[in-house]
Design a protein around this nucleic acid. Structure first.
Lengths: 297, 297
DNA sequence: ATTGTGTCATTCAATATTGAATAGCACACC
DNA sequence: GGTGTGCTATTCAATATTGAATGACACAAT
């Protein structure tokens, strides 16, 4: 029997939102931690319940229909309310055990956090960590992450921020690349080399401007906003790039260029909603991150 | 593994709301159409997921804790958003088959609608009807009902209203009661009898005021706001009461008193959200109700 | 034309969830 | 004290749901 509108299962709306935002059942399944056939059934279920086609099926995923697009507003309003609800409950949660979700940039996730979190897991086996490697800004207000590690000071309301370190930066190029083009003796020689940069992300442009180098986007002949891909391009000899000293130093395939050149360092901020920050297990992870980043200075 | 806050199953919030508003697992189970053990498990599940105690258990049900009370706001915001979402989808639903939810007062539900809905079921077997007998005002904005039958013109925004009939009212008393106290010859004799009235509901007081009878709440020696109980009290000889003529006429155990006395009639309004009203199966039920109430005039 | 990739839809064994039945409790009524 | 009522918590057979495996499809790359 078809259920009434008033009886719509709200978890179906959750499913709808995930599929709408990822663009496919498979991707949404990965995000939600369920299987693709399960999501397929749930999408059909909400479409049947509402008597409306919310998605148009394609070989490479699902696109929102007009109806589906119209529903995004209220669906996102539900998520906002659900996040507020979770925040209220967080104030009551005194458990030291349970999950903590951390979001950090791809590079920090790959190179900085693994040893930190591994040690924390040994010290606090009751705390489970979800690490979300993402260069986008998660919304802490809605409990999409408990702690965010950022390279800028977030300006969101009601969040606690703490400056934990400044990451020293260095200029690197692959040994193979340098063997081929020669090692520059000065800044002019350095700037004449091929450079790897970001695409739309202006962080490097701003950093170079701060160092007094007026360059434009086309100065970089290889561009990507994916930070992991960025470093792989540099490692592979794609050109000169900028990376954290701790990461560059650990890499055998690259050489640091012109080490005496002062570069602006990269500030690292921990961020959390103040209610969430007070939860015992989040506070414990926060302390561990403060100590770990402090040791990097 | 304890799930993360971000992964909270929204149907658990739905459960929380139903239990919070009904005050017990058993009552909420009846409302939601699931079993009491199922709701018991789901309440424990959301409490575990949020790491907070939302309810205080009692022998006669569950009372909200402070945390639970604080969560009502965002939970109700979710329901509001879910209702808006359902309304948007309703505009797309062109099916003539499926469920339609009607809410009407207890008396109309008991005495007027059964033959109407029975005939409609024969004519449109693809339409399923949920009849909610309730004297409270459902919220049509949130799709808590598709069509409401009311004795007053609703003032809600975006709803379509239609005045379908005026119900003639009459004064009745049980034959047994009248045999015992005598049949009044005039209005003074009538007012000297015992009367059955409402408790907090002022509808009868207002009706009598309109008829020029200034009486107070204590004029009624038997009082209930439950309209079915009201009529049963009159039928059982509890005193004089006012009822729709169609209902009074069909009842063998009562007699109409002072038929020449003009009473204000009771207007009947059909109400539906305008988007919902356009859905084919809701439009069909609306037509059937218009025709049925029209035949009562 | 062939191959590889990522997608959705289907099947069915495995797993999870549900609800009937029941126990136990608190309270009101007699 | 005994009985009736309405509640929550527990057990376990019945039922529903899930996901592994698979087929089919569209598209890009070769």
């Amino acid at each position: 029997m078809t259920q009434s509108f008033a009886d719509l299962d709200w978890s179906l709306v959750q499913t709808f939102l995930a599929v709408a935002e990822t663009g496919s059942l498979s991707a949404a399944a990965r995000v939600l931690g369920v299987s693709q056939p399960t999501l397929g059934r749930k999408v059909r279920e909400i479409e049947a319940a509402l008597g409306a086609e919310l998605f148009m099926r394609h070989a490479k995923g699902l696109a929102l229909s007009e109806t589906g697009a119209a529903m995004l507003g209220p669906a996102q309003a539900m998520r906002e309310a659900a996040g507020r609800l979770a925040l209220m409950a967080a104030g009551e949660d005194r458990r030291l055990t349970g999950p903590v979700r951390i979001t950090a940039s791809v590079v920090v996730s790959h190179f900085v956090l693994p040893p930190v979190l591994t040690r924390l897991r040994r010290e606090e086996p009751g705390i489970e960590i979800d690490l979300v490697a993402s260069d986008s800004s998660e919304n802490l207000l809605f409990r999409e992450a408990d702690i965010a590690i950022r390279m800028y000071r977030p300006g969101q309301l009601d969040v606690v921020t703490r400056h934990v370190t400044d990451l020293g930066m260095g200029i690197y190029a692959a040994t193979g690349y340098l063997d081929r083009v020669g090692r520059p003796a000065d800044v002019d020689g350095l700037l004449a080399l091929d450079w790897v940069g970001f695409d739309r992300n202006e962080m490097i442009l701003r950093g170079m401007a701060e160092a007094g180098w007026r360059v434009g986007r086309d100065f970089f002949k290889l561009r990507t906003d994916d930070q992991a891909a960025y470093w792989q391009l540099v490692r592979a000899g794609g050109g000169v790039g900028i990376m954290q000293q701790a990461i560059g130093a650990a890499e055998q395939l690259v050489e640091r260029l012109v080490p005496e050149l002062p570069l602006p360092s990269l500030p690292v901020w921990l961020t959390a909603h103040e209610t969430v920050r007070r939860m015992p297990r989040v506070a414990r992870v926060w302390e561990a991150l403060v100590a770990a980043f402090g040791a990097l200075s």
